[in-house]
Every structure is written in C-alpha cells, then in structure tokens.
Write a protein that binds this DNA or RNA. Structure first.
Length: 277
DNA sequence: CGGGATGTTGAGCA
DNA sequence: GTGCTCAACATCCC
C-alpha cells in the first residue's frame, strides 16, 4: 500500500487513533527493521506521548516532541489496531505499541522490507535532504522551473526518473504509470526530450493524479482488509495499471505492458508514443 | 513444481 | 556523477 495517497490515508487513520495517546510499552519482534540504535529506540518510546502523525513523501512521521519516529512501509507494511493488549499470534507482526488507551498498534510486514528509525525532530529536514527527497506534489512546493531544468539536463528515461523521488516525492509504480498515461508521455521517453509544454502538462498530471488518489483514500490492490486506512477506492479509477489487454479509455487501443528498469510498466501504445529521433 | 512477478529503496557496479 | 541491476523477503500466480 505504499505510494503517497496510501501513506497519506494511513497517516490520517493513525492520527485519529494515536494522537494524544501515550506509548506504554514497545515490543519488537524483528530487530533488523529498526535502523537507529535499538536500545535508544526502546527506551525513548517507552511512556512517550505521540503528539501527531505527519508525512513526508512516503514516510510516516510520528511526532514525539524532541524526537520523531520515522516509519516507511516499503512494499507491504501495514498498521493494525487491536482493542486491547491481547493480540493474536501472527508471524508477520513485527512491532507492537501498547497505548495508554489499552489499545495496541501493531506493525505488520509480510516481506520485512519496512523500516523504522528514531530521528531528532530538529534534524528531520537534514534527514530528507540526505535522502535527496524532492518537493511534495503540490502547486506551491513543486516548482515548474526547477522541474524543467532538472529534466532538460538528464539522460534518464522519464519513468525511472520520476520513481527516484528526487524530482517530486510520492510517486510509485502504480501512480507513475497513471500520470504518464494522463500526460500522454511514453514511460521510456528520455527526460530531456520533453518539450517545456509537455513538462508543464506532466507536472499538472503528477499533482492531479496524486491528489485524486488521496481523495479516494488510496488504492487497495493485493492487500488484506482491516489495515488502517485501507478502504480506498482508487483502484476503481485506474486507467492503465493492471489493465493489460484492456481498451484505452481515450482511444480504444489495447493497453500494453513491458518491463522498464525492472518494473512492470503499463501504457497505451497509441496515446503514448515515443519521440522519433 | 519452477520461475517470475509484486505497491520500495539503496548498495554496488560499469 | 550517472544510470542500471539486483538484493532485502514472503507469497501468489501461471
């Protein structure tokens, strides 16, 4: 569930659930997912108040005051809520937060790719600078001039470049295919080949598609129910992702799928033509 | 059953 | 620096 709209939906769910509550006890079953010092993590979180849950890109940020718990869901991370300290056994439950309300927040991750780290709240900006995290996909933060310049200077293909988070934060494999379809750009198009007009269209598509995803509560694909924030309907509005062989909504041509930089890539061969050089 | 794919990211290599 | 491949891991689908 982890592109920006899904993470934002989870953030909203978490915010309602844990805001103003205290963590009584933290139990960690899979220590490797804690990237910062484990003993500090354990000690600091014990009896710690959660003030609010924020988000940057695909990262969840639990504001604990002086420190912030930074959580990334990667491919399949999920937060679940249980009404008491009694939590069923499950081999994929890795971190347990017992809250002052007696509820338990559980982090579940089948593939164990997710990460958590404790970061000084004042060092958060620096943390994301070091990760080369681009701006949030909003009208104000996502600057067109900078976007144009970066694209014009790159040899990269547009889809892998958009996925690396440095141009703009939050796109993943589903939404990037949707954005490129909306903007009528071939995923393998070289970034520098895009005209200034196309770049402007692309920026608008990024902002619009991710905003629509948030509005629909994210997409639920290959996910279980009952996870926080996972009642999204965006999957019903997808135009190309997972639509191989189905008709393009704009022109009726069959949607095709190929592999680009190791990622399944869906596009309309008629609407999204590669520029001939 | 074996191989490939799955919503991410970053290490390592040419 | 840049651009690509692959590994971390478990499950599902053909």
């Amino acid at each position: 569930m982890p592109e920006l709209p899904e993470v934002e939906t989870v953030r909203r769910g978490l915010n309602k659930l844990v805001c103003g509550k205290q963590i009584r006890v933290v139990k960690i079953n899979y220590e490797r997912m804690i990237q910062s010092d484990l003993a500090v993590f354990q000690a600091y979180l014990t009896n710690q108040m959660i003030y609010e849950v924020n988000r940057r890109g695909k990262y969840l940020l639990f504001n604990l005051g002086e420190k912030t718990l930074v959580s990334h869901l990667r491919m399949e991370g999920k937060y679940l809520r249980f009404p008491s300290a009694e939590v069923p056994d499950n081999p994929h439950f890795h971190v347990f937060f017992e809250l002052s309300s007696n509820e338990t927040l559980v982090y579940q991750d089948v593939r164990k790719f997710g990460t958590m780290a404790l970061v000084d709240t004042t060092a958060l900006d620096d943390f994301f600078v070091r990760k080369k995290m681009g701006p949030e996909p909003t009208e104000t933060a996502f600057d067109l001039k900078t976007f144009k310049l970066r694209l014009s200077e790159s040899q990269k293909k547009i889809k892998p470049y958009l996925l690396d988070q440095s141009l703009v934060a939050g796109l993943g494999n589903i939404y990037v295919d949707e954005v490129l379809w909306l903007a009528k750009i071939h995923p393998s198009e070289l970034a520098r080949n895009l005209s200034p007009q196309k770049v402007a269209v692309l920026r608008n598509a990024v902002i619009a598609v991710l905003a629509e995803g948030v509005k629909r509560g994210g997409a639920t694909i290959r996910s279980y129910k009952n996870a926080l924030g996972l009642d999204g309907t965006m999957q019903e509005y997808l135009k190309v992702y997972g639509k191989t062989g189905q008709s393009c909504e704009r022109c009726g041509t069959a949607i095709e799928k190929y592999k680009l930089s190791g990622r399944g890539t869906h596009f309309c061969p008629k609407c999204q033509k590669l520029k001939k050089i």
